[in-house]
């Protein structure tokens, strides 16, 4: 039943997407950044972590002192900035995706169970959400990464364990409204198992809602990773993370502000792309927004 719905829905989604400029721009930008991240080794002109101390702090192409081999100049250790920017897309998207897999799994499961079963199960899970919301996220993430040892895996695990709340809240509300729908009542009446109802019927019906949360959360995670790396407790050097690059460029902001301007702009473009795309998907798939 749900499969039939998808078959008829897909062409309309595409048609609406073509009519929606924001979604189109967001989607295109996002696709380009994903391609850059995937093909980073082919695109990057230099090794992103190879240092050349004789060519430190070369400016980007619009300056007089720039050199053609380093289009966006070099950083304080003589590493090619363009290559670091290209590889930085991998870190941002990788962390975003990794965290969403963890947090989405936790949040969707909790929300689904709480919303469908209600009663004391719902009370316990709602309480857990409330408790989680009162924790200062940045601080707890910083502390956990500092104590757990800064690495990409720790970072993804910590953020994944912390950021499931929005998934849980949204899935819970959606499950609550779906459980009283006639087709679910019907399935229960013919004796369908709970697992089947939850994962084969209710979950697929939330696809659009979940997709919107995914886009919001990916943007959120990308910004958090950048902030944590900026504070020195996220991704370890010499990994080319945009947040870390901003932190490294900070000492030279008086004379070489492009060192922070470039990775910061890249972050803005990526997050903007994710948000535009997500907003568009919400307008296209969901009910009208106020």
């Amino acid at each position: 039943m749900s499969d039939a719905n998808v078959e008829t829905a897909r062409p309309t989604v595409w048609r609406k997407m073509r009519g929606n400029t924001g979604t189109l721009i967001g989607g295109t930008l996002l696709a380009i950044i994903i391609l850059i991240a995937v093909f980073a080794p082919l695109l990057a002109p230099h090794d992103p972590i190879a240092q050349d101390l004789t060519r430190r702090l070369l400016p980007p192409f619009w300056h007089d002192r720039s050199v053609p081999e380093h289009l966006l100049g070099t950083d304080h250790l003589g590493r090619d900035y363009l290559s670091r920017m290209i590889y930085g897309a991998r870190v941002s998207l990788g962390v975003g995706l990794g965290v969403i897999l963890v947090s989405g799994f936790i949040g969707i499961t909790l929300g689904l169970v709480a919303g469908y079963f209600g009663g004391w199960i719902d009370m316990v899970i709602s309480f857990t959400i409330t408790a989680r919301l009162s924790l200062p996220i940045v601080l707890v993430a910083l502390a956990a990464v500092a104590l757990g040892g800064a690495s990409l895996t720790t970072l993804i695990t910590v953020l994944g364990l912390l950021l499931w709340d929005r998934f849980a809240v949204v899935t819970r509300a959606a499950a609550q409204s779906l459980r009283h729908q006639e087709f679910i009542m019907g399935l229960r009446a013919i004796g369908a198992s709970r697992t089947l109802i939850l994962f084969r019927e209710i979950l697929p019906n939330m696809r659009a809602t979940i997709l919107v949360v995914v886009s919001l959360e990916v943007a959120n995670v990308i910004l958090l990773e950048a902030a944590l790396s900026f504070l020195g407790l996220g991704v370890r050097p010499p990994t080319p993370s945009w947040g870390l690059m901003i932190s490294e460029g900070r000492d030279n902001i008086l004379f070489d502000p492009w060192l922070i301007a470039l990775p910061g702009s890249a972050l803005c473009v990526l997050v903007l792309a994710v948000n535009l795309f997500g907003d568009g998907m919400r307008d296209i798939t969901g009910p009208a927004r106020k």
Binding site: A219, A227, F230, R250, I260, G264, L267, V269, V271
Partner: peptide, 22 residues
């Protein structure tokens, strides 16, 4: 609203320092 969601706060702060402070 859209731009605020996309600009990292620490970066906006640094850029503000560069422009208005320096």
């Amino acid at each position: 609203a859209v731009s605020g969601q996309a600009i990292p706060s620490f970066w906006l702060g640094l850029m503000a320092i560069v422009v208005f402070g320096v």
